Amino acid sequence: MDRDFIIQIASENLKTIRTEHNYTQDKMAEILGISKKTLVQIEKERTLADWTTAIAICALFRESCILQKQMGGDPLEVIELTVHDVIIRPQEKTMGGHIMWKNITEYKGFKLQRNLLSKHFRILDDENYRLISTFDEQVAKEKWKDIQRTI
């Protein structure tokens, strides 16, 4: 995934997200920090949101089923990966990848998984906490080998 794809998803789904939350155009424009005119232009697909607005949509509405379905999970994780390439730090507990994830391999409860939509990789510990996320398959496999050596 890249910035253009995230912008496209956020822009195409803005009206649905707004109506899902029962916000008026005025209120949604205020929440996102854009003019109502800009919001209307995005909703009518005459223009795309800019990168900052797309991030605001994903951050403020990250629990939106629409965004999560389109991005294959947490929109902010996808944005972080787009910007940083690799995220290595313990994060929130996941559901273990029952939806949108394919297990590539498992070892002593740890899992190396790939997202079915965004195609990024992650490693979960034995309690389903995310340890690493990356779009780079080589990095994921190297970290997987490191984990296997240390546990």
Rank of each mutant, 00 (worst) to 15 (best):
C58V: 07
I79S: 01
A54S: 14
V83L: 14
I66L: 12
D85Q: 14
M71P: 02
W51R: 02
G97S: 08
T94E: 10
M95F: 13
M95W: 13
V78N: 04
E77F: 10
P75K: 00
W51L: 08
Q68I: 03
L67F: 06
A59E: 12
E77R: 03
I55Q: 05
C65P: 11
K69L: 14
I99K: 09
M95N: 14
A56Q: 08
H98C: 12
I66C: 07
W51M: 05
E92D: 11
D74N: 11
L67C: 07
D74H: 05
L81W: 01
E63K: 01
I99V: 15
I55K: 05
G72W: 02
D50E: 06
A56L: 08
R62M: 08
L60K: 09
L67T: 06
T94R: 04
I79K: 00
L67M: 08
A59M: 11
T52N: 15
M71F: 11
P75H: 01
I57M: 03
V83G: 09
T82V: 09
L67H: 02
V78C: 04
Q68R: 11
W51A: 11
K93E: 14
I57F: 00
C58I: 06
Q70C: 12
D50H: 03
D85P: 00
M95S: 11
L81V: 12
M95D: 15
T82R: 00
V78T: 07
G73H: 00
T52E: 12
T52C: 07
T82Y: 05
T94L: 03
A54E: 03
E77V: 15
Q91H: 13
Q70M: 13
H98Y: 13
I55G: 01
T82I: 05
H98V: 12
I79Q: 02
L76F: 06
A56S: 15
K69G: 11
I57R: 00
P75Y: 01
A56D: 14
M71S: 06
Q91D: 15
E92G: 14
A59H: 08
V86W: 06
L76W: 04
T82E: 11
T53M: 07
Q70D: 10
A54T: 05
M95L: 13
S64T: 10
G96F: 02
T82N: 04
A54H: 00
H84G: 05
L76Y: 02
T94W: 00
P75S: 06
W51G: 06
V86D: 15
E63V: 07
I79T: 02
K69D: 15
A59C: 07
D85A: 12
D85M: 07
F61V: 04
A56I: 01
I99Q: 06
E77S: 11
G72C: 09
A49D: 03
E80V: 09
M71T: 12
F61K: 01
W51V: 08
I66W: 07
T53R: 00
Q70A: 15
R62Y: 09
A56E: 12
K69R: 13
E92P: 01
H98M: 13
V83I: 15
K69T: 14
C58Q: 10
C65V: 14
D85F: 07
L76D: 07
I79V: 13
V78Q: 01
P90F: 05
K69E: 15
K93H: 11
M95P: 04
P75E: 04
M71H: 04
A56H: 07
L76E: 09
G72I: 09
L81D: 06
Q91R: 10
C58T: 10
R62C: 10
H84Q: 13
